[in-house]
């Protein structure tokens, strides 16, 4: 299998013991010939497998075991890809298909998976969240913009839209009208005080609260295709003001990736990740937690995730 050259070059970045330890733990959790579940004893699932692939690739695939695991896991993801091109949440549960962008990102750059990527992107471009017109004055967002839903036939939300935009950007479709519409939806769902949540910014006139993971993911998705402007700046400010207390791997990962995308990666990143890792180990780690922390630490992660970083673009 041909791997990205940059993934090998990245080995110089591996300076922390916790990264080596986390990678070892992740590789040990690989279920032979297949992929990863959410926990060591749970069933294989697409999201967890794709995240682990990305995390190991972000760390440069140190050693034969990691490389073999990623190769096999990418194959497993391809094996559950449906004729439509979509990827469900597991082999036995083919719907909903929101993990499809995760699979695209895990496959991207792997030559033998190029056909899977193309089919998945074609399908993703056809999937639209439902729109609503003439909504009474209940919610704060524009319900006529079509992004991507969690479940086919339902409304669009921030995370599936952001992940679709990232996957399509990774595939070089920055200028596609669906990407532009997804970007428009994400920008429209921004909360007035800064940041994003799952996708509702106000209801009955009340401004809702932002969340770090959604905010970081939205910032990552918008990189290279939107801004900079006050929406980006206030979202980065929100993350910077809250990141020192973040220990939850998923939120910390996306917060860091979002800030990185806009040239505002914190100086304390290494300390934050290490503190989170220690906490995770103390409480019993789960597979995605390891993946998120490795992904946040990997210098190649922005490229793998379709993030197009630009220094200082998110500043006021």
């Amino acid at each position: 299998m041909r791997l990205l050259r940059e993934e090998f070059v990245n080995s110089k970045a591996r300076s922390s013991d916790w990264i080596v330890d986390a990678e070892d733990r992740l590789v040990r959790r690989f279920m032979s010939g297949s992929g990863w579940g959410y926990t060591q004893h749970s069933e294989l699932c697409a999201e967890s497998t794709a995240l682990a692939c990305l995390a190991l690739r972000a760390q440069g695939l140190q050693g034969h075991e990691a490389s073999s695991a990623v190769r096999a896991a990418a194959g497993w993801l391809a094996s559950i890809q449906q004729p439509s091109g979509a990827v469900g949440i597991s082999e036995d549960v083919p719907s909903p298909t929101w993990p499809t962008p995760y699979a695209i990102l895990a496959w991207a750059g792997l030559k033998e998976r190029s056909e899977s990527v193309k089919r998945a992107c074609d399908w993703l471009l056809l999937l639209k969240g439902t729109t609503l017109e003439n909504v009474e004055n209940v919610v704060g967002h524009d319900t006529t913009i079509a992004g991507w839903p969690w479940n086919a036939g339902t409304h669009s939300w921030v995370e599936p839209t952001a992940m679709a935009v990232l996957a399509l950007k990774r595939h070089g479709l920055n200028g596609h009208y669906r990407v532009r519409e997804g970007v428009r939806l994400i920008a429209d769902r921004a909360i007035s005080g800064g940041g994003w949540n799952y996708g509702n910014n106000a209801v009955y006139g009340s401004t809702l609260r932002p969340q770090p993971a959604s905010t970081g993911m939205a910032l990552a998705a918008l990189s290279g295709v939107y801004g900079p402007n006050s929406i980006i700046a206030s979202a980065c400010d929100y993350l910077e003001n809250n990141i020192s207390g973040l220990r939850a791997p998923q939120s910390l990962c996306w917060a860091l990736l979002g800030l990185t995308a806009w040239g505002r990666r914190p100086a304390a990143t290494g300390h934050l990740l290490e503190a989170s890792y220690e906490r995770v180990l103390r409480r019993g780690e789960k597979t995605p937690q390891l993946s998120y922390l490795l992904l946040a630490a990997g210098r190649q992660s922005p490229g793998l995730l379709g993030i197009q970083s630009s220094e200082h673009r998110g500043n006021h």
Binding site: D92, P94, T131, E133, T144, N151, A152, G153, T154
Partner: peptide, 17 residues
């Protein structure tokens, strides 16, 4: 293989709600 109860159609006609 089982599917989450949901909705298959992607194209929705705009309507007043």
């Amino acid at each position: 293989q089982l599917r989450v109860p949901g909705i298959a159609s992607q194209e929705a006609k705009p309507r007043r709600i």
